[in-house]
């Protein structure tokens, strides 16, 4: 079968996704997450007398905990199919990708399964984050030294 013909047929049978609805849902979800995070930070700051930076870190840890927990219960995957990037772009997506990799490869053993596959998806974030931060940081540092 010719490739173009095949692609035509494949396009016909591809599930049509309502892009506007998806975008709206992910926007809503991201907004709600941000709102929740802000609320948690406010509560932490006012009730536990933490500094704002500490409150932010605690809030992040709380969200990571929740995301890992829901992932291991299988709830998070169902939520992701609904909300898409609204859940994947915040730090919850980072925790989710790592926990799901760990769970998937658990059967292959603790060392070569979980240990070596944990950063399969989350590794891209760390890799490009660190390399870009280093390069840009070096540029900025050199600018400051020269100036």
């Amino acid at each position: 079968m010719r490739d173009s013909f095949y692609e035509e047929i494949a396009d016909l049978h591809k599930a049509r996704e309502n892009k506007i609805k998806n975008a709206f849902l992910s926007f809503l979800c991201g907004g709600v997450l941000g709102l929740l995070g802000e609320g948690i930070v406010e509560i932490l700051v006012s009730f536990f007398s933490l500094s704002r930076e500490d409150g932010l870190v605690w809030m992040l840890i709380l969200f990571i905990f929740l995301a890992s927990f829901l992932t291991s219960l299988g709830i998070f995957d169902r939520m992701v199919t609904i909300f898409r990037c609204g859940l994947l772009i915040p730090i919850t997506g980072f925790a989710h990708s790592m926990t799901s990799c760990c769970l998937d490869t658990k059967t292959e053993g603790l060392i070569y399964g979980m240990g070596s596959n944990a950063f399969k998806l989350a590794g891209t974030v760390l890799f490009y984050g660190v390399s870009s931060a280093f390069l840009l940081g070096a540029v900025r540092y050199l600018i400051e030294v020269i100036a």
Partner: peptide
């Protein structure tokens, strides 16, 4: 964030 992610994903898995 990184330590929390690693720790929780390890424990839960």
């Amino acid at each position: 964030g990184i330590v929390a992610t690693i720790l929780f994903s390890f424990l839960f898995s």
